[in-house]
Design a protein around this nucleic acid. Structure first.
Lengths: 205, 205
DNA sequence: TACTGTGAAACGGTTCACAGCC
DNA sequence: GGCTGTGAACCGTTTCACAGTA
């Protein structure tokens, strides 16, 4: 398996999303030019990205939607379901629990945790909310891959420590705080204020 | 005003967030090395970024936290409040309306819109929910800068068209669909499935 | 002809190595 | 000595230009 450059991965996931919608529309083939028009990327970039996965297109015709989808899936999605746990069942946490479209992508939230006793014990969209103390036990029992932090920023680091201690190797952090993590744990920070402010700067240029 | 490279902007916003927390702790100075340790970036990168804004540090001491904060703010934040509107008062929209920490960053959601009559008329966290039809009028009246899409993906494009028609120049899109937008409108797409899947790929490398 | 695939050039951004300074 | 500031080297990524092909 060839080495795929860091930034082609999210783009490939975007192609996958686009292909799924084209297939639903009944399309059999699509060209790099059309994918470019839809996604806002360039046709060359799309061809370069796809060429990582082999020679799969046909000159004069383009790519077969189903075939390309399957090939991209092989490279970029796992065989099995990706299991996640969520910390913080406030309004953001609840929105994530109710987010539609995870199942289709082989993503599943196995459990949620909260320290507020009024929230624990409930089930939100089929996911049970446990007290935080039970996190290590539940995480280990259910082979979780990724943890999501949706707690107030004061508690971000302690939750991260709990996750690392329970063996999680990937963290998506919605708390506006920088986490101190060991080298071997990957993280993705989503700070809504920063997203909005950065976009605003873009509009001024 | 010197030209600032595209990727230093979100980092600068991150420095700002970090400085604010250091100032709250009572810190007067901080070195690039310490900022690096906190944020997970490198010290050189931080110095390079800051050097865009002038010679502001002191050898042997570092940066004065308050002074640096004010300088960064001048370059990267506007004088006035940034006004936003939200489309879609479902669970994700509600979570955004309740998100704490916008005010501190001069961000404000002026109004929300939904097509579901059961949701319109309500006030969520002080923000009124209007029927979508009233969007152009409300947007124009209140000098809005940014629009947020938190509707189901089927309605993403129509909402985007409505925003563009009302004169918005920046869109943050949480719907997992590619928007067709004119050149002069900036957009930032946040597809939660893609974020989680891309992180998962990171953990496998 | 209208597409894919790709080596090579160009670009942008990060890192290096070190000068300058208190 | 321990910090900042920065030109130059380096590196990954994107774009260009064009060869290949049904």
């Amino acid at each position: 398996m060839k080495k795929i450059s860091r930034r082609t991965i999210p783009r490939t996931l975007l192609y996958l999303r686009t292909l799924e919608s084209l297939i639903k529309e009944g399309r059999y083939t699509v060209s790099s030019g059309e994918l470019a028009r839809i996604t806002g990327l360039t046709d060359v970039q799309i061809r370069k990205d796809i060429s990582n996965f082999g020679r799969v297109g046909t000159p004069r015709i383009g790519y077969k939607t189903r075939e390309l989808k399957n090939i991209l899936k092989d490279y970029v999605l796992p065989e099995n379901i990706i299991r996640m746990v969520l910390f913080g069942a406030g309004s953001l946490g609840t929105a994530i629990l109710k987010y539609p479209g995870f199942r289709k992508q082989r993503l599943k939230i196995s459990a949620a945790f909260d320290k507020d006793k009024r929230k624990t014990g409930k089930t939100i969209n089929g996911v049970k909310v446990y007290p935080v103390e039970r996190a290590p036990e539940v995480i280990r029992k259910s082979r979780v891959d990724i943890g999501i932090i949706a707690v107030p920023s004061e508690h971000g680091q302690e939750v991260a420590d709990l996750m690392v201690g329970s063996g999680l190797k990937g963290i998506v952090n919605f708390a506006p705080v920088s986490l101190n993590l060991p080298e071997n744990v990957s993280a993705r920070d989503i700070d809504l204020s920063i997203e909005f402010l950065a976009l605003y700067c873009d509009t001024r240029m």
